[in-house]
Write a protein that binds this DNA or RNA. Structure first.
Length: 207
DNA sequence: GGAATCCACGGTGG
DNA sequence: TCCACCGTGGATTC
């Protein structure tokens, strides 16, 4: 029996739901985005464990005439690193199975980002794997904590910006040519917003 | 007048 | 070697 059917007694327990309700948004150039709000129930427990349990790195970066703080905290888990929470192993396994065989190899790495408040952000980019790599790669993102906007727009400028709200326990998967032909960003916001952690699963490493 | 968008800037890693 | 990448702040547009 699906735990989700057992009723309110377990509403706050940490568990993954079914992936059956994923909504796919087709984009131009053969890109697509899948969205499943509230995939992870009890996400507050995961958020709290990650805040305390992950060895977050603050990075600095040379940008023109000065060194600036990267506007988020980071931690990367390579394919041989144990993930910081068992539910993340479950998520990675479930996602690898669900997206097979379109996903040609399983999700292996996990990149974690901690957006402390509305001043934290990530600029427009596509997740490339290596230089000059033209192979399409799928990225699955689990988002916990405060809701933030994920913006997507085509790299060639030929189309409108697409906006997704990333809420507590939501799953977003970018696939097809998305990393090659589209950029995405989490912009800063002046609205008061709490902290958010994203967990990005990929088949192989990106820092 | 605040929010959203665009642009220029250049050292660096792959 | 060489070029795409990345964050900020000012200008511009609503």
């Amino acid at each position: 029996m699906d735990v989700a059917l057992q009723g309110s007694l377990f509403d706050t327990s940490l568990a993954l739901g079914s992936l059956a309700g994923i909504q796919r948004t087709p984009l131009s150039h053969g890109a697509w985005v899948d969205h499943l709000p509230g995939w992870l129930r009890g996400a507050s427990a995961l958020f709290a464990d990650l805040v305390d349990g992950v060895p977050w790195h603050a990075e600095r970066r040379q940008m023109y005439d000065r060194v600036v703080d990267v506007p988020r905290l980071l931690c990367f888990y390579g394919e041989t690193d144990p993930l910081p929470h068992p539910i993340l192993d479950e998520a990675r396994t479930a996602l690898s199975a669900h997206y097979h065989p379109e996903l040609k190899e399983p999700f292996r790495t996990a990149g974690l980002c901690y957006y402390r408040d509305g001043r934290d952000s990530v600029a427009w980019h596509g997740d490339r794997i290596g230089r000059g790599n033209t192979e399409d790669t799928m990225v699955a993102i689990l988002s916990v904590g405060a809701a933030r906007a994920l913006l997507l727009r085509p790299k060639d400028g030929g189309g409108p910006t697409v906006r997704h709200a990333l809420g507590h326990g939501d799953l977003i998967v970018m696939g097809g040519s998305c990393q090659r032909t589209w950029d995405h960003a989490v912009p800063k916001t002046s609205k008061p917003v709490g902290p958010r952690i994203s967990i990005q699963f990929r088949p192989r490493g990106v820092r």
